[in-house]
């Protein structure tokens, strides 16, 4: 009905957070040397892409099934008061589950990427030492 609105809400928040973090990193970037692994803005950009991609494609599916229309109130469930309750219940169950699953998978992606970056670090240091740098 409107389950994709929950990940969309999360995507709006994380996009704003990413922009703020990006600006902070740009300011700090000149003062400090970059640490190994992904920056927080890069990490959040992955989450935003997952959330916005999912939201856009699910919105298309809802249009296809006639659950979203291009005229107000946009959600066909809103036209009938009896459908509003089930719609909100669906958002609270399926919508929240979608947002949690995507965020959890993103967390695993970040964890794996960080572990890979840390594992690669001694090899980089070793090659630098061997190279006489």
């Amino acid at each position: 009905m409107a389950c994709f609105l929950v990940p969309m809400g999360e995507a709006i928040v994380t996009t704003v957070v990413q922009k703020v973090v990006e600006n902070k990193e740009k300011k700090v970037g000149g003062e400090r040397t970059k640490k190994v692994g992904l920056s927080w803005s890069q990490r959040l950009s992955w989450l935003n892409k997952l959330l916005w991609g999912g939201t856009a494609l699910l919105a298309l599916e809802h249009v296809w099934h006639g659950e979203v229309v291009p005229w107000p109130p946009f959600l066909t469930a809103m036209e009938n008061p009896a459908d509003v309750g089930p719609m909100l219940r669906e958002m609270a169950t399926i919508g929240v589950a979608m947002a949690i699953t995507v965020t959890a998978i993103w967390g695993i992606m970040i964890l794996v990427a960080e572990l890979k970056a840390k594992a690669a670090m001694p090899k980089v240091k070793e090659s630098l030492v061997r190279g006489g740098v």
């Binding site: 992955w46 892409k49 916005w52 991609g53 494609l57």
Partner: peptide
């Protein structure tokens, strides 16, 4: 890729 995977995860949950 992330666009497709985001949608796949959401539809899988659904």
């Amino acid at each position: 890729s992330l666009f497709f995977w985001g949608a796949t995860l959401m539809w899988l949950v659904d």
